[in-house]
Design a protein around this nucleic acid. Structure first.
Lengths: 227, 227
DNA sequence: GGAAGGAATAAACATACTATTCGTTGGGGT
DNA sequence: ACCCCAACGAATAGTATGTTTATTCCTTCC
């Protein structure tokens, strides 16, 4: 039906419809109704529903049907949910939240990275900082930027920090696509990447933390939450 | 098979097997093999697999089967994954990470709460602080503690912060069940809950942040990451 | 030796059956 | 006459099995 598979089509369609608010919380659907509406088989719909239940978007009850849950029970950290929110009226709120989350996590993660990185990781981080400075195109800049932040988070040796890489990548992508061209890059931003790599390499956690905070704040275009 | 439904049994069994490392990364299964081993139907196995794929534990490919993915691609923020890691040899690492995550985001979230809470929420937060002080049993203390932290996060008006409530609840639960009896409660801990509620009520973000940081640090039993 | 085609295999998809739950209705008791 | 409770029935998620299609590997032919 959708080219990239019936399952993906149904999952994305349902998820986007719920997150966008087109189907309000409390609304009751049924597998059968979705089958009739989309034309795909029960199996596929059920599989998609199971994923949405796991994401907190739906609850399933016998004789009750599929109840759309309020946004308070959605798994806001789920990559799909983030994407759906970015394609919905909640887009602006989601972007604000992404920045706040970055501001909270990245400085401590950088501190942890400075304490726990391997020498090879420190070297690779410096390379990526150089690549950011030398980037000759928006795409190259974006790729190096995402690589840098992903590696920084991975060096923290904390799987939960590392997973927030998806959040950072989404924020960077939005920034590079949105109304704020990031290329040619701001010189101070470039410099900060180098300073962070150096602080991590020199095992200076508080410096890594402070530089990272400055970098994220500069990219946030808004007053930071008081510390 | 499992009493609480075949689906839950299969999902939990597979997830725990992968996260515990009993089934190593790179191992290739197949739906049919799981059907034969567990005795449940293909539908159920497929639905469970779809959830595990969404959680980053498996990848499914035609003619290839189900490939177990390395832990770097697991969704470490997923509630199920956290639970499975707590029931595995990675338990100690998971607890350390939970504390680091709390330390990173709870102070900023408290600051946001101080700026954005409603009056009703501030009042309710005070009530919960009082309930913590007055708790007459370990269960009552735990319930009030979880309620307090959940509400604090919800007041931040950031869905991603609010969702980390599961992380906090898990950390508190471990603490109350584990070797560190939390009841009768430490007087300073009780006092800090009151001070946080007051700071949020008085719209003092930096004070709310600092008190929250102190509280989480006191509960961490380890040197905090440098700021 | 390389490319193209075919066969085997396993996920993707569709359909059929079962068990459970909740609403409704009818009867009996207050 | 009204209310409560229990039994029955319909509706829907849960479970099971059959069918199709895409992918990959291996073989063969150029």
């Amino acid at each position: 039906m959708t080219g990239r598979g019936a399952f993906d089509g149904v999952l994305d369609g349902l998820g986007a419809a719920i997150v966008s608010g087109r189907v309000p919380a409390g609304h009751v659907e049924s597998v059968e109704a979705i089958v009739a509406r989309t034309g795909v088989s029960r199996s596929i719909v059920r599989e998609a529903v199971r994923v949405l239940v796991a994401a907190g978007l739906l609850s399933a009850g016998r004789r009750v049907g599929l109840r759309v849950l309020p946004d308070t029970s959605w798994d806001a950290l789920n990559a799909d949910v983030i994407r759906w929110r970015l394609d919905a009226p909640s887009r602006a709120a989601q972007l604000t939240e992404l920045i706040e989350v970055r501001l909270a996590f990245e400085p401590p993660a950088a501190a942890a990275a400075a304490l726990r990185r391997t020498d090879a990781e420190a070297a690779r981080l410096s390379e990526l900082a150089d690549a950011i400075a030398a980037a000759a195109s928006p795409d190259a800049f974006f790729a190096a930027d995402v690589g840098f932040h992903s590696l920084l988070l991975a060096c923290s040796r904390n799987a939960m920090f590392a997973r927030l890489q998806t959040v950072v990548a989404e924020a960077l992508r939005e920034r590079s696509l949105g109304g704020h061209p990031r290329y040619p890059a701001d010189p101070r931003d470039v410099e900060l990447h180098g300073l962070i790599a150096a602080a991590v390499g020199a095992e200076r956690p508080q410096e890594a933390s402070a530089r990272t905070r400055e970098l994220v704040e500069r990219n946030s275009n808004r007053p930071a939450l008081p510390r």
